[in-house]
Amino acid sequence: MEKEKMVQKRKAIIRVLIIVDVMLIIIVASILIKDYYPELIRLLDKRKDTQLLTATFRNHGPRDIFLLILLTSLMGAIPGISNSIFCVFNGILFGSWLGFIMNVVANSLGNIIIAFVIKKVNLKNKTAKLGNVIQDLSRFNNKTIGLTLGYMIPIIPSFLVNYAALKLNINSRKRIFSTIIGVIPASFLYAFGGDFIFKGKSQNAVIVISCVMVLALLYYFIYRKHKQHEQLTR
């Protein structure tokens, strides 16, 4: 009975945190929409001057950079929700390199928030999916490398990777290092992809999407090699 009450309490805390997160997202998004409203109207105009639009879009200062980083990290902190569209928008609104830096900061912060919440709430329920991720990461002799690869692949929910990292008792320093290194490839691809889309370079955007697929295949290849090595050493 006591155990069931604890489980219900944890679920209630998570619901409250998600509601607070969503409310913050709505507030920050509303501020950004207000800031970018003139540019968004021009973007819908078929007669728009692309060069002028680029200059006005990217003429926003540190305040909007901070708000976009905050918005991207808050989206990334919600379990099961992808913030990839915001990572692409960072590239659209601030260009390739600044968008890339914003994505790295936001994605790292989002993962750190998720890990902090999981640890504080002390989640213990393990679904089959969580068990699979933990098992996959535990196959790597170097858990830090496995964790870094887990963060690299956009198709693997970051909530699952963070949960697995805590269950495998990977210390905070290694976990944060793996987070920062792991989010770099996808952050780079989304920012550059957004910039290419904004500039109308559709061929380059296709290359970026292909690179995301290559990342997924790379993870699968490395995972298979580790699995084969494990079977041979038994």
Rank of each mutant, 00 (worst) to 15 (best):
N171M: 08
I65H: 05
Y163S: 07
S108Y: 09
K126N: 02
A106I: 10
S96A: 15
I134H: 06
F116C: 08
N162H: 06
S172T: 13
V133L: 14
Y190E: 04
P157K: 12
F116H: 08
S172L: 14
F100Q: 03
G194F: 12
I101H: 00
G150P: 05
V104F: 04
G150F: 09
N125P: 00
R63E: 05
K199G: 14
L130P: 00
Y163P: 03
K167E: 11
L93N: 00
V105T: 03
T144P: 03
R63C: 06
N162E: 07
L189T: 06
L98Q: 11
I197G: 05
F66G: 05
L67T: 11
T179H: 01
L71F: 06
S82T: 14
F196W: 15
L130C: 11
S187K: 06
G193L: 15
L74Y: 00
V161F: 10
A186H: 03
I85H: 07
K129V: 04
G110A: 12
G146T: 03
D195E: 15
G182P: 02
F159G: 14
N90P: 06
L147C: 10
I112Q: 04
Y151R: 10
R63L: 14
V133Q: 09
I170N: 05
P157W: 11
M75T: 01
N90Y: 06
Y151C: 09
D136S: 14
Y163A: 06
I181Y: 01
G193I: 13
T144L: 12
A186Y: 02
L74R: 01
I114N: 01
I176T: 10
A106G: 10
S82K: 04
S178W: 03
G146H: 04
N132Q: 13
S178I: 01
I181F: 05
L109P: 09
K167F: 10
P62E: 00
G150I: 11
N169G: 08
I114M: 14
R175K: 04
P79Y: 12
F196D: 09
I197T: 07
G80H: 11
G131Q: 09
G95V: 02
I101Q: 00
A186M: 13
K167A: 09
L137W: 08
L168S: 04
F177N: 02
S84T: 13
I65Q: 05
A128P: 02
L168C: 01
I181M: 05
F159V: 05
K167M: 12
S158D: 12
L109Q: 09
K143P: 06
F86Y: 08
V161S: 06
R175N: 07
R139V: 13
S108H: 05
I114H: 04
S178N: 01
P62L: 07
P79W: 08
I134N: 06
I184D: 09
I78E: 11
S172A: 15
G110H: 03
M75N: 03
I176S: 02
F196I: 15
I85E: 04
M152F: 12
I69C: 14
R173H: 13
